[in-house]
């Protein structure tokens, strides 16, 4: 009672001052907590493409920096064939020699070769000498002659690559190009990194290959192949990887013919597909990248078994604007552009 009496006798001004102070302190604490649990997003260029990060949870800026450093490492230390002394550069520089590489690089290459085997070589990371000829998006982009392609095609043979836990050997005349799976592999590494941070959830795009991380549900737009700034539909997804291969991303037109960047490794030419794009959803970034390329080249019917082997799902968009969706995604897909038609 004595305490209450003393408090009761306090000057009202003091009471107001105390109330204001408590309110401010609570406000600052709440504001700080909200700030820490809010979203941090940024966009930059890395791995020769646009990278967008949206991180939810505390320390977003610091964690985003770690992610960007991780992407940089994936490119410069492991997978880029243009970075001097990356694992892939060293492999390409020494055909016929068992080159020591990181365990991660060896695993990425082994996984890529396994996909090549299952899709009968239409996707093949030994296509390096031929992608150099085309140089899509590069300084020397051009239509190569038939002779140039014929000369190099015999060396595009995934079965000639030997991989152990820490070494990779390519055959004479071969060179690796991991461009088709590099962005997805980067997403795999980012997932491992994020699991060691305090990030609650995240959605990360490395050139359109996506990592969806954490418990949050995300709405993912599928690019309209005829107008790449807009989506034609969306998928409701949580914690997974998404990748799209389309004929609209990198291409050039010569003699009124469009040459896109998705090369059929068995011919050395852009895949002659009835499709405009394929979006693949599965539990690996590397596989979603590799499968979207393979499925684009093989077409709808021939891709279904390949997808089921990897427990992957896909959305196929045909040139006539028909959309075919595998069973596992049908109830997750929403069509937003009525000019497309979803086939039953």
């Amino acid at each position: 009672m004595k305490v209450i009496d003393k408090l009761r006798n306090l000057n009202k001004r003091a009471l107001i001052a105390v109330t204001v102070c408590i309110t401010l302190i609570v406000g600052i604490v709440v504001f700080d907590a909200v700030r820490k649990s809010s979203e941090y997003s940024t966009t930059t260029v890395a791995m020769g493409t646009v990278v967008t990060l949206r991180l939810f949870g505390p320390d977003g800026e610091e964690n985003a920096q770690l992610v960007l450093e991780n992407i940089d490492e994936t490119e410069k230390a492991l997978l880029s064939r243009n970075e001097k002394n990356s694992d892939v550069d060293r492999i390409n520089s020494a055909p016929g020699t068992a080159v020591s590489v990181s365990y991660e690089t060896a695993e990425i290459i082994a996984d890529s070769l396994a996909v090549s085997k299952k899709c009968e070589g239409v996707f093949d990371i030994t296509v390096g000498e031929i992608t150099k000829l085309w140089d899509f998006g590069g300084e020397n982009q051009r239509l190569p002659s038939d002779e140039e392609i014929k000369e190099r095609l015999p060396f595009v043979t995934y079965s000639n690559v030997k991989v152990t836990d820490t070494t990779v050997t390519i055959a004479e005349g071969q060179s690796l190009d991991l461009g088709a799976i590099g962005k997805g592999a980067a997403c795999d590494r980012i997932k491992t990194l994020l699991s060691s941070t305090n990030t609650d959830s995240a959605v990360i795009s490395v050139g359109g290959s996506l990592l969806l991380y954490g418990k949050k549900d995300f709405t993912i737009g599928i690019t309209n192949p005829e107008n790449s700034q807009n989506s034609m539909g969306s998928l409701e997804l949580s914690e997974t990887f998404v990748s799209t291969s389309g004929n609209y991303e990198k291409f050039f037109v010569e003699n009124d013919k469009k040459y896109h960047h998705i090369l059929d490794a068995t011919t050395g030419y852009p895949a002659d597909s009835r499709l405009m794009s394929v979006t693949v959803v599965c539990d690996s970034g590397l596989l979603s990248d590799a499968l979207s390329t393979a499925c684009y080249i093989r077409g709808y019917q021939q891709s279904l078994e390949l997808l089921s082997q990897y427990n992957a799902q896909a959305v196929f968009i045909f040139k006539d604007k028909t959309v075919r969706i595998t069973d596992g995604l049908k109830d997750k897909f929403t069509l937003t552009d009525e000019s497309f038609v979803v086939a039953e």
């Binding site: 260029v45 646009v50 967008t52 737009g221």
Partner: peptide, 24 residues
Amino acid sequence: TSACLPERVVITINGTDKTDMMTY
């Protein structure tokens, strides 16, 4: 978003409309 990759310049309109991210 639009990007000039050779020059490493990116324009993006902040926020999201109906989707959290686009795959392309």
